[in-house]
Amino acid sequence: MEPLQVMVLALLALGAPAVVLTHDPLRQAFVVGVYGLFLAALFFVLQAPDVALSEIVVATVALPIMILLALAKIREHEREDE
């Protein structure tokens, strides 16, 4: 195993608990995006650039935006209920 691969795997081992332990969903949306970037870096150092590209677009564009929009809708409901 190359040193770079070990480094990225270590980052992932730190990043996954960070996502789970972030309690505020708004912050979690950003943390999960950063975790997705680490995952893309892992695919890249394992010589799978196609998979890395897919991971980047899904984890940093598609997923956080959907979480943020869902949160915006939920908050608006909460405001109307008050």
Binding site: P49, D50, S54, V57, V58, V61
Partner: peptide, 17 residues
């Protein structure tokens, strides 16, 4: 090169985002 319709399609949509 690495990439293709799926990845490029999401990037195109991201431009509008």
């Amino acid at each position: 090169t690495p990439g293709g319709g799926f990845q490029g399609g999401v990037v195109l949509a991201a431009a509008l985002l």
